[in-house]
Amino acid sequence: MKIFFHFSVIGFSNTYLIGNTGGGDAILIDPGHMDIELLKLIEENNFYIKHILFTHRHPSHTEGLRTLMKIYDSDIYANTPFIMDFKVKTLSDGSSITLSEIPVSAMLIPGHSSDSLVYKIQDALFTGDVLMSGKIGSTTSSLSRSLLIRSIHEKILPLNDKTLIFPGHGAPTTLCVEKKINPILKPK
């Protein structure tokens, strides 16, 4: 399995391209912006975007969808019925699917948004705006913040410490790093 990281200065967001060695059908997570660099990344590695996964429907994670759908005939997955008028295959907490021979499981971790999904692919976790390096996602109320922290503790912290974390914004990290340096997660 190959994982490619793409950063877009529009929305300051990360997009992840995941596929098998040698190319073929691939997965794109959070296309916040479709630019020529992302297109080159896909095409030069002989990938076809068959599946698009969204961690949540905020614009900085979804704005590239319309352009992508003009190029590829992709299935869309998220925890919401529609994104930009495109019909979505809805995933919920605990959903497990296999996309392009790659097993993907989803965890619903609300707080930053009500539809926030975290995707686990082998030992890689695509956390969107739920968990980033050294911080957690922003929230609009103390209730949402409590919900987010509780869900992270219940669903993410029990995972293996070696799990690699690929967030929606900022640098990658690992679960072990976050347990030690993230002020929200490290033991008091």
């Binding site: 990281f5 390096s133 640098a171 990658p172 690992t174 072990c176 790093v177 030690k180 340096i181």
Partner: peptide, 8 residues
């Protein structure tokens, strides 16, 4: 260095 982790 792009997208690399030296944390901790």
């Amino acid at each position: 260095s792009k997208y690399s982790v030296f944390a901790g």
